[in-house]
Simulated assay, not measured.
Amino acid sequence: MSQPSDEGALVLFSGGQDSTTCLAWALERFARVETVGFNYGQRHRIELDQRQHLRRGLQALNPLWAERLGDDHTIALDGLGQISETALTRDEAIRIEASGLPNTFVPGRNIIFLTFAAALAYRRGLRRIVGGMCETDYSGYPDCRDDAIKALQVALNIGMEKRFVLETPLMWIDKAQTWALAERLGGQALVDLIVEESHTCYLGERGASHAWGHGCGTCPACQLRAEGHGRFVAGRRQG
């Protein structure tokens, strides 16, 4: 996109595959893009360490992206980890609870993230807030659903007297299509950057390097990423 919107955007940037793809998506569309990450005591905190490698990699891939990429912010939300007691915030086996949700669900996480992001966007003069929530390939988390994001946008705009737009470019695509979107945005170089530098594994293991990236290979996040990458590669061969 040669003529980006002159609006600024704030990207929820965890250091994972989805948020890296969302950051590239925003860099194509907006003249100024800032990033925010959250440290909530997550077991896979290593994702936060990967964020700067990814930001530098994106800048190196495209001079326009380098121009548009602005400040990075990290917000400590220790209290969220302390009260949630989930498999993402303490050392316990991943399983499905009686509620039908996996015990990796951190109640209120996306609601809290987007609320803090909106408060930061308010101060930074940014209207667009971009997140990697997805209702297609996801773990059943209710705060990833489109209805939840739309309802929160209304609440934030009423409560802050603003007209924020919560952008969710991955909402209706699956993991294979997310890989394909990254390829469209930045070619094989962006796909390689995501494979080599992003982190999605719930257990926080960089582990061996697989075709789809680093991770334990067995947790739900690794399995979803690996399966999506396999479908993406197969689709390219057929095409």
Rank of each mutant, 00 (worst) to 15 (best):
Q3N: 11
Q3R: 13
V11R: 10
L12I: 15
S14Q: 03
G16F: 10
S19L: 05
A24P: 06
W25Y: 11
A26C: 03
L27M: 06
E28K: 14
E34N: 10
Y40C: 04
R45Y: 09
I46P: 00
E47I: 02
D49I: 08
A60M: 08
N62D: 15
L64P: 00
W65I: 09
G70M: 03
H73R: 14
H73P: 00
I75W: 11
G79M: 05
Q82W: 01
Q82Y: 00
I83F: 00
A87F: 01
T89P: 05
D91E: 15
D91M: 09
A93T: 14
G100W: 03
P102L: 07
P107S: 03
P107M: 10
G108E: 09
L120Q: 04
R123W: 10
R123I: 01
L126A: 06
R127E: 12
I129C: 04
V130C: 10
M133D: 11
D137P: 12
I149A: 14
I149R: 12
Q153M: 05
V154T: 12
L156G: 02
I158R: 10
G159E: 07
F164K: 08
L166P: 04
L166Q: 03
P169Q: 02
M171Q: 14
M171T: 11
D174A: 07
G187A: 02
A189D: 11
L190I: 11
D192R: 14
L193M: 12
E197K: 15
S198W: 12
S198H: 09
G207N: 09
H210C: 00
W212L: 02
C216I: 06
A221H: 02
H229Y: 15
G230K: 01
F232Q: 01
A234Y: 03
G235C: 06
G239I: 00
